[in-house]
């Protein structure tokens, strides 16, 4: 005797028609394997009913918050790295373009490479002389200022510099320390 459609009906969760129900019962009375399968399925169903849903260990939301904080901090670091890489790339690109432009201008303006080189060296000398002059100005100011600026002026200056230091530390902390997103 065939086991279909009884096997399908046996495992169906939909309610059967009365005639289907009767036919299935008649089949089960005569078929040992289907009867055994039916009994096993009833056991499985009962086991599912008995073993209800299981929950996580206490404190799951707190552990999730901690994991979220780690993930957000990681994501922030990745964004910072990307921004840094982008900044380095853009500045390097600009520097390269400027260098190419200077080289191209030199080739157009000057008749020979030696003339180009000599002009470059002359410009470098000028820069060094300017720095030297600036250093001299600083030395003179260091000698003159203590006599000119009163003590109260120095106090105000030191206080302002200290306040700037505090503001700088606060801004750095705001940027670097991760914020809680949820309670």
């Amino acid at each position: 005797m065939g086991h279909q459609p009884f096997k399908t009906w046996l495992f169906s969760e939909e309610p059967l028609e009365p005639d289907q129900e009767a036919a299935l019962q008649a089949h089960l009375d005569s078929c040992e394997s289907c009867r055994s399968l039916s009994a096993d399925w009833v056991e499985v169903r009962n086991l599912f009913t008995r073993s209800g849903p299981v929950g996580p260990a206490p404190g799951f939301p707190t552990r999730w918050q901690a994991r979220l904080a780690v993930q957000e901090s990681k994501a922030r670091r990745e964004i910072e790295q990307e921004v840094n890489i982008l900044f380095i790339g853009v500045t390097s690109g600009i520097a390269l373009i400027l260098l190419m432009a200077i080289l191209a201008a030199g080739i157009i303006i000057f008749d020979s490479p030696s003339q180009y080189l000599m002009t470059g060296l002359y410009s470098l000398g000028n820069i060094i002389n300017s720095l030297k002059a600036f250093e001299n100005i600083l030395v003179v100011m260091a000698q003159v200022l203590p006599g000119v600026v009163p003590a109260s002026g120095w106090i105000v200056f030191i206080v302002l510099v200290s306040l700037l230091g505090v503001a700088w530390t606060y801004v750095l902390q705001k940027i670097l320390v991760p914020r809680r997103t949820t309670s």
Binding site: V54, G55, P56, F60, W64, Q65, T182, S183
Partner: peptide, 18 residues
């Protein structure tokens, strides 16, 4: 709103874990 999502975690932790 992270706080609101936290409430959803609290509510659905058992079905998701199960």
């Amino acid at each position: 709103d992270g706080d609101a999502f936290g409430q959803l975690v609290e509510t659905y932790q058992i079905p998701v874990f199960n």
